[in-house]
Write a protein that binds this DNA or RNA. Structure first.
Lengths: 270, 270
DNA sequence: ATTCACACTTCCACTCAGCGGAAGCATAGG
DNA sequence: CCTATGCTTCCGCTGAGTGGAAGTGTGAAT
């Protein structure tokens, strides 16, 4: 992205660039996606008029787009005429998750088995980090997988490991957009402190999250080098079990696995 | 696919009705969705030219659509320039799943606890049944949830319970489109036999799947009456534990829960 | 029971977004 | 180095998409 901007200097009688769809893209598709996202933000349900209010688009336009989504099963319509996200999206999401976590799973499972703690793979999605695969340790078998969950980048191991792959300017843009809320007293909440931390991470070769996301949980994370989308691999567990000495064992294994994962992600099945 | 073929004979200058998008819908959105679906069918990954071949659309058109999806994170692009489904879809699918299984989960969990077997909620999606929520029994804790999985309607308890809510003509259309492959020797593979079975289900008030999907697994399923999309609730387990006498206990509870679910699905949180 | 108000849906003519043929680039293979 | 293949950009034409206005249904108020 970051395409047609910053060159607003010329005094040409520009007809107001605004926040239009980046050129070379399809307006109606972009709008349809915006509607889906809005519904997701609203908890998966919305009325037509609510969508109109949020987007500023005229009702007939939205209605037509929703009809299209409806016929494809991407949204459903309740008897109250309100819309909800549809069953077909589950399938797509599953497929995407499988694709992303595809070759990854065996590596993660092996890693979790070897180190005995929970392993996560996450990549950046807009301004957040999204978990795309997980191998749980036997200790904490959770009913609900974390896959699909989005977390702030500044407050998690994987998040910081991902940010460390980006230029500082981009990092600042991200935190400017989404902010840096504190999840715990340990969370980094200052942009400059974050940049310093990222420099340390690049130097050291791995990120540490020491109760910054959840008190009592420590996490070591490394980048997956050369992944198509900035990606990170982490291992985490209770501070009691996951001490700093644990890093000496874990980090080399993480790096090795990350390198293998990189190959797998770039040319699947190769 | 199968679009502009076979009718090469007539010399009439017919503007060719074809398999157009139903009127009042948005062509480009429909096409974008088709691309996503194709990618999912192809295992989550495809090259531009493959998509062109499958859809019959010209390359530039597809390229533009993919660019839009790309910028929204609905697809990613590998260094090989091939496309894969993107991380953002996971989030959407999660949200859709949460929405669909929303109020349902507590009911399912209670039901699973009360009856001690795995409970599933499924709804129809095109020509298949898709699981939208599950509460597993303690017996068989699976690593991978079944949520999102799509199954044939004719070979499963939930499937048949869903079909029983549809007119025979619609049922025949569905099986004509997707066929009736046998999952086990018990699977119903004849359309007429299926219609007879559905009549029995409507009469009896619940569906039985006796090893038709998987040998040794029995399942009782009831419709969720008045759901916006035809939906069914089932309980299933090994034939050894789930005998026919079990139905006497289970079915009334299933019916009661289904009725409660119906209310919940129609007006969430009410 | 009747009216009113609101929200959704359909209609239709204008027009600009989207389309796709053709030309331009990269990248892999010879 | 050259060729082949497949992706990407360009650009003028046009019909798909748009959105104002009118219609319809539903639920609340009187």
């Amino acid at each position: 992205m970051g395409s047609t901007d910053s060159t607003g200097s010329s005094g040409a009688p520009q007809p107001e660039p605004r926040e239009k769809v980046a050129s070379g893209q399809v307006q109606s598709v972009d709008r349809a996606i915006e509607l889906l996202e809005l519904m997701a933000d609203a908890g998966g349900e919305a009325a037509l008029s609510e969508l109109a209010a949020s987007t500023g688009l005229p009702l007939p336009t939205i209605h037509r787009l929703m009809r299209t989504l409806l016929s494809r099963g991407y949204v459903r319509q309740l008897p109250s005429r309100r819309y909800t996200l549809g069953p077909r999206l589950i399938r797509l999401g599953e497929s995407a998750g499988r694709q992303l976590g595809a070759g990854a799973r065996p590596y993660l499972t092996a890693l979790a088995a070897e180190l005995g703690e929970t392993v996560n793979l996450a990549m950046i999605d807009r301004d957040m980090a999204v978990y795309v695969a997980q191998a749980a340790s036997r200790h904490s078998m959770r009913m609900f997988t974390e896959v699909g969950r989005r977390v702030f980048t500044h407050a998690t191991g994987v998040g910081k490991a991902v940010l460390a792959q980006l230029p500082d300017a981009t990092v600042l843009e991200i935190v400017a957009r989404v902010g840096m809320p504190a999840a715990t007293p340990q969370t980094i909440t200052d942009p400059q402190a974050l940049l310093t931390e990222l420099a340390t991470i690049r130097e050291r070769g791995y990120a540490i999250d020491d109760g910054e996301q959840e008190i009592g949980v420590r996490c070591f994370a490394v980048e997956v080098p050369g992944a198509p989308t900035p990606t990170a691999l982490s291992i985490s567990g209770p501070s009691a079990r996951v001490g700093y000495d644990f890093a000496e064992t874990a980090v080399p294994v993480l790096h090795r696995t990350a390198a293998e994962l990189a190959k797998e992600l770039i040319s699947p099945g190769a």
